[in-house]
């Protein structure tokens, strides 16, 4: 990644963190930096700026891992497998973060850390899928076989994801917006009812976390390439 982009992302994310934590919440916003007060959410609404983009980045990491898995199956190039694993390991980290931020929010808004709401169930399943993916990888010694089988597994797991995103919230009652029994809107795409300035910060955060994911991803790929190279040198001696 280019140097200027790295600096830009750092400044961007810092700005979002400052805006998300420090911008005051008032009943009647007067200036551009004041968020409106949302009844029922109050100050807890700030979490939307961090929790939702992290969850989004988790899904991006998962999809990237799946796409590189499919590319590996087509080209049989070990570099694609390396990318697939890098993305999956970052995805695991982001998934844990999304679960934790969500659980904390759930504790203070819905009363308990875990409610088995459909979205919570899906993030839990995603954790299980990542866990199973790494268990499968550790159970196979041969490098190419490991790459093929884990790619196939991530594809098989990937096709079930629409069931979690589109189907489960319709059949289970839940607490997240967009669940069954929520009049404001059913389905995965929510109607954004945030104020304009908050929406701007939210989308800026979405972009920021996605670019941050790509930065971490390129670092991870480079690190793993070096590790593999060192391993090959050690084996040849």
């Amino acid at each position: 990644m280019k140097m200027w982009l790295k600096i830009a992302v750092s400044v961007w994310i810092t700005g979002i963190i400052i805006a998300g934590i420090a911008f005051p919440m008032v009943r009647v916003p007067q200036t551009w930096y004041e968020f409106p007060f949302i009844p029922g959410l109050e100050e807890k609404a700030r979490n939307i700026i961090f929790h939702v983009p992290i969850s989004w980045a988790t899904v991006v990491a998962f999809v990237m891992s799946m796409i590189y898995g499919a590319m590996y199956l087509r080209k049989k190039d070990m570099d694609y497998d390396l990318r697939s694993v890098s993305s999956a390991s970052l995805g695991l980290l982001l998934c844990v973060l999304a679960t934790l931020t969500g659980a904390v929010w759930a504790k203070f808004n819905w009363g308990s850390f875990w409610n088995w709401d459909p979205r919570q169930t899906s993030i839990f399943i995603l954790l299980l899928i990542y866990g199973a993916y790494f268990v499968l990888r550790s159970a196979i010694d041969e490098e190419e076989r490991r790459a093929t089988l884990s790619s196939v597994y991530s594809i098989i797991a990937g096709v079930t994801v629409p069931f979690f995103i589109f189907v489960m919230p319709r059949i289970m009652s839940g607490l997240h917006p967009g669940s069954l029994g929520d009049e404001q809107g059913k389905g995965p795409v929510l109607e954004f009812k945030m104020a304009t300035n908050m929406l701007m910060v939210f989308f800026a955060s979405l972009i920021g976390f996605t670019v941050l994911y790509f930065w971490m991803y390129t670092l991870k790929v480079r690190l793993m390439r070096i590790e593999r190279h060192v391993q090959q040198i050690n084996e040849s001696h």
Binding site: V135, L136, A139, I140, I156
Partner: peptide, 26 residues
Amino acid sequence: ILAAIIAKANTKGTLFPVLAFPILLP
């Protein structure tokens, strides 16, 4: 398909439910 995958892995017995559970949950 999962059975075909685990047939190639080293630990066959315990791996199957671990891999199958998240996929079969819906």
